[in-house]
């Protein structure tokens, strides 16, 4: 079966090896079947937006990619390394994969700068001065260098999320995962975070992003993946997905999203 080819629309264009391969991944919470034969291949520098109703398993899938959740069946290969119980593989992958959470998860007891330098110092073994220079570099890129000495509690939600993005970038990841990065934000702050993400996309980062921001998907995504009830229902370019949905479930979802906005 040529499903793999089906899955990678740009493979022929980019000629790059896949960054992430999910092959028939299954996961259960107790008796609940939350991921059902999920297969997805993401090429290097590809930007994929995952959408779907809540409880569709999209967050679970993205969290499986850096093993915050463990899958029970199938294979997940990230940057050529298969995710297993082996902790060494896990360490390598977590260095290469950055993650941004819905609830920011900044460390409240550390300054913004310390939030960003913690992992470079303790994981990448960088000298403190270099780590701080790197962190200031990325904080400048997300446009909040002046907040470096403050604590997360003193920042607005949008600023916190941009710090979270800078913090992940400080590890120089090859892949960035975004788990509903704008869902916990007030409407006026969503744009500043999306702008940061668009800039990142333009720089050629491999991105997997769970979001309902359809404008963002249109502008940035190479591919949109629609999930429902733990399975991938439909995927394609944003234009095709939004203008010409093939399945009733996607049509229903799109109508609900549009009504909601």
């Amino acid at each position: 079966m040529s499903q793999a080819v089906h899955n990678i629309p740009h493979m022929a264009d980019t000629q790059a090896p896949p960054a992430i391969v999910l092959d028939k991944v299954n996961k259960w919470y107790g008796a609940m079947h939350v991921l059902r034969d999920v297969s997805l291949t993401i090429a290097e520098k590809e930007r994929v937006v995952v959408c779907g109703p809540s409880g569709s398993g999209k967050s679970t899938m993205i969290r499986c990619i850096n093993r915050l959740e463990t899958h029970q069946e199938g294979h997940i290969i990230v940057d050529g390394t298969e995710l297993t119980d082996d902790t060494r593989a896990l360490d390598t992958i977590r260095r290469e994969v950055g993650m941004v959470f819905q609830s920011f998860n900044l460390f409240p007891h550390l300054t913004i700068l310390e939030n960003c330098t913690l992992a470079p110092i303790w994981v990448r073994k960088m000298p403190k001065a270099d780590a701080e220079e790197l962190a200031m570099n990325f904080l400048t890129r997300v446009k909040i260098p002046e907040q470096a000495k403050k604590y997360p509690g003193q920042l607005s939600g949008g600023q916190q999320q941009r710090v979270a993005i800078a913090r992940a970038l400080c590890m120089r990841p090859k892949i960035m995962l975004f788990d509903e990065p704008t869902s916990a934000l007030d409407p006026e702050m969503i744009k500043e975070v999306l702008d940061t993400m668009i800039q990142l996309a333009e720089d050629g980062m491999t991105m997997v992003c769970v979001t309902h921001e359809m404008g963002f998907a249109r502008q940035v995504a190479d591919r949109v993946v629609f999930m429902d009830r733990g399975e991938i229902v439909e995927s394609g370019t944003p234009l095709r997905m939004f203008e010409d949905p093939q399945t009733d479930r996607l049509k229903l979802f799109l109508s609900q999203i549009l009504r909601g906005h």
Binding site: H6, N7, A31, H33, V233, G236, T237
Partner: peptide, 19 residues
């Protein structure tokens, strides 16, 4: 490119399997 081959699975739901 917009002429890519899309993945479209069956419109019905895949049945939940036991663990």
């Amino acid at each position: 490119s917009q002429t890519t081959v899309d993945q479209v699975t069956e419109p019905g739901y895949t049945a939940a399997r036991d663990r």
